[in-house]
């Protein structure tokens, strides 16, 4: 998997959302609206690699996203 961002996914998310995050943090509690969520996920996809639209619909927490990319790295 090609990564263009020099830091970790968690660091990237914290920087984008200007918030301290844990794996349990729900995106719905830290994003402003659906547009912000979508923009963030598209930025994540661009910087950290593939995630399908279908998979995005099941991303509820920061941990869900971290797990997706950890699995992607293993495979």
């Amino acid at each position: 998997m090609e990564t263009h961002y020099p830091g970790s996914l968690l660091e990237f998310l914290e920087g984008e959302l200007c918030a301290k995050l844990t794996p349990e943090t729900r995106f719905a509690s830290v994003v402003e609206d659906s547009l912000s969520f979508l923009q963030l996920m598209l930025d994540v996809r661009e910087k950290f690699g593939p995630i399908s639209n279908e998979q995005l619909t099941s991303i509820e927490t920061v941990g869900d996203l971290l797990r997706h990319y950890e699995l992607a790295e293993v495979t």
Partner: peptide, 10 residues
């Protein structure tokens, strides 16, 4: 409307 709207469209 904090992400679920986008997810619904996806």
């Amino acid at each position: 409307r904090t992400g679920y709207g986008a997810k619904l469209l996806l």
